[in-house]
Design a protein around this nucleic acid. Structure first.
Length: 214
DNA sequence: CCAATGATTGCCT
DNA sequence: GGCAATCATTGGC
C-alpha cells in the first residue's frame, strides 16, 4: 500500500531556471538535498526526495567528464545552459541521471545518487523488476535512474519540462543532518578524488554505501 | 580500425 | 570480500 498517495503535488513549487544557472555547482548540490525529483513518463508519476548527490565542477575537476573543457559528443550537453538532463550509460548497464548547471559553455553537472521514494512506488518496483519495497529501490545512481525511468535518450531534455522536473515542497533538512564526504568511484581523479563534493542526509537509509535490507 | 574502460550493481564464495 | 556483466565512449594507431 502506498501510504503517501495522498500527497498534494500542487503544493510543490517547480524549481525555476535561475536555480540551475547559478555559478557554484557545489552550492547548488547542497540546495538540492531535500528537494523532490519528479518524472512523468508513460502517464506514470514517480517522485522521491533527494538524499544524496555529487557535484562535478567541470573544467577544474579531474573526476568530471568535462575536465579541462573536454568536449565530445557525449559531454556536449554539459555545455548547454543549466537546467537540462545529462543521462549517460555507465559500465554498459546503468543509466546515470545528472543535472547540468551554470550558464552556457561552463560544463558543470550534479549526479543524483539516492532518493527517498514518495510517489509511484509501484511503478518504481515494476521498472526495477522488484517485488518488495526495500531501501535499495532508490539507493545508488543506477537504481535511482532505473526506478524513475531515466534513459540516455533523455539527455538534453529541460528540467522545466512537464515530464521531468525538480520541486520544492518546503521541506528542509537541518544543517547538521546534511554532511559532505568524498565522492564515490572517482579514484582515477588523483587529488580531486579528495574533494568533499558528495552530500548526503546522515543516517538516511536510502543513502548509498551501506547494505541494508527491508 | 580496435583495444581499454567506466561518476555501478548484484550475485557468488 | 571478490568479481562478472555488458556496451557506448574514448583515444591511440
Amino acid at each position: 500500500m502506498d501510504v503517501l498517495q495522498s500527497i498534494d503535488t500542487n503544493e510543490w513549487k517547480r524549481l525555476p531556471k535561475e536555480f540551475y544557472l547559478r555559478p557554484n555547482v557545489v552550492k547548488i548540490t547542497t540546495d538540492l538535498i531535500g528537494k523532490i525529483l519528479v518524472t512523468k513518463f508513460d502517464d506514470k508519476i514517480t517522485a522521491g526526495r533527494i538524499v544524496e548527490a555529487e557535484a562535478y565542477n567541470g573544467p577544474f575537476d579531474k573526476a568530471s567528464h568535462s575536465y579541462n573543457n573536454r568536449r565530445t559528443k557525449r559531454t556536449e550537453v554539459m555545455y548547454a545552459e543549466g537546467g537540462v538532463a545529462y543521462v549517460y550509460l555507465c559500465y554498459g548497464i546503468h543509466q546515470m541521471f545528472n543535472i547540468v548547471t551554470n550558464v552556457a559553455d561552463v560544463p558543470n553537472a550534479i549526479l543524483i545518487r539516492a532518493l527517498e521514494p514518495m510517489i509511484g512506488i509501484q511503478t518504481m518496483l515494476e521498472r526495477s523488476n522488484k517485488t518488495n519495497h526495500a531501501y535499495d529501490l532508490t539507493k545508488g545512481p543506477g537504481n535511482v535512474a532505473k526506478a524513475l525511468g531515466f534513459h540516455t535518450s533523455q539527455t538534453g531534455i529541460s528540467l522545466l519540462d512537464d515530464t521531468m522536473f525538480i520541486a520544492d515542497d518546503g521541506w528542509k533538512y537541518g544543517a547538521y543532518e546534511v554532511i559532505a564526504t568524498t565522492r564515490i568511484g572517482v579514484d582515477y581523479a588523483a587529488e580531486d578524488a579528495l574533494l568533499p563534493y558528495r552530500f548526503l542526509v546522515k543516517g538516511n537509509p536510502y543513502v548509498s554505501g551501506k547494505k541494508l535490507k527491508t
